[in-house]
Design a protein around this nucleic acid. Structure first.
Lengths: 157, 157
DNA sequence: TATTGTTATACTCTATAACTATA
DNA sequence: TATAGTTATAGAGTATAACAATA
């Protein structure tokens, strides 16, 4: 009944649709391996950062500390990570990849790379460049200017 | 520890990061209104299509029929939609917006428009055009060629 | 006092399987 | 036989609040 009427709205629409599609694909693909997107995002974050506290992970992934406890529990049960004592803060634990976890995380990174290659395979480099720079720009606007939907709503007037 | 090493991977990375950010913002913004992203996506779909069966909604949103039952239950409880009898198929129900639901859905559309305007405000039209066409291209590749992460994995070799 | 992570509790989303009513 | 939607059941993600141990 209502169609996007300006190019900005159309772009956001398309972006959200794509995110939904990719997320759905990711979810089903991972479920087949006994993983979930949330746990994988933890796994990736640990691969990227090395041993890291649950607090840092919770902040990075925008979830509560309680939630992170559950996610790490799941990964520990799957023997993908261990909880190691923090050397200088006895309250904290360092979430650390096991060999199995490292292998799994690296495989996931390879999968994502192969996927990216397929996705953008027949795209001229110039277009990919513009695409990436726009994404960069938008992420910065979101991060640095505290841009939110709530803020947008206030400006509607 | 591992950084994206080619532009395609970097672009996908950035895209997924952006989707995560926007999704988180959406979730918290909607929670304040007693809604969820899943229920809102149903609401939007009904606004776009008009009265529609749960089966169609389930297919459009890539969820199971059982799941759609629960989502519609929630919207009915919030008096945003009603279940009306299908005129020619007595098995099916037509999910239909109430006046309250119509108002809410239209407000959500306005919010998203305002957000899109803020997000892309200072972007040259040409760049926005390229950005949108790349998104279009990628969505088509996903939809039409059955491109999936699983498929990408097989091609890793 | 503030912070890290946990236990307690509750709600939402998601899925599979079995079932009813209808096509 | 096939389809639309529900009931039954189960698991995962998320959040708030209260708490213990430590900073």
């Amino acid at each position: 009944m209502i169609e996007p009427s300006n190019p900005r709205i159309a772009a956001l629409d398309r972006m959200l649709e794509l995110a939904l599609l990719i997320n759905h694909d990711l979810t089903t693909s991972l479920a087949a391996q006994g993983l979930s997107t949330s746990r994988v995002s933890v796994l990736w974050e640990v691969l990227r950062r090395g041993p890291v506290t649950q607090r840092e992970l919770a902040d990075a992934l925008h979830v509560t500390a309680r939630n992170m406890t559950g996610l790490v529990d799941g990964l520990v049960a799957g023997q993908l990570v261990t909880r190691e004592p923090h050397p200088s803060d006895r309250r904290a634990t360092l979430v650390t990849l096991t060999p199995k976890g490292t292998t799994a995380a690296q495989q996931l990174v390879r999968d994502q790379s192969a996927f990216a290659d397929l996705l953008f395979a027949d795209l001229p480099p110039a277009e990919l460049g513009t695409f990436a720079s726009v994404l960069d720009h938008v992420v910065n606007r979101l991060n640095e200017h505290g841009l939110t939907i709530a803020a947008a709503r206030k400006e509607e007037g």
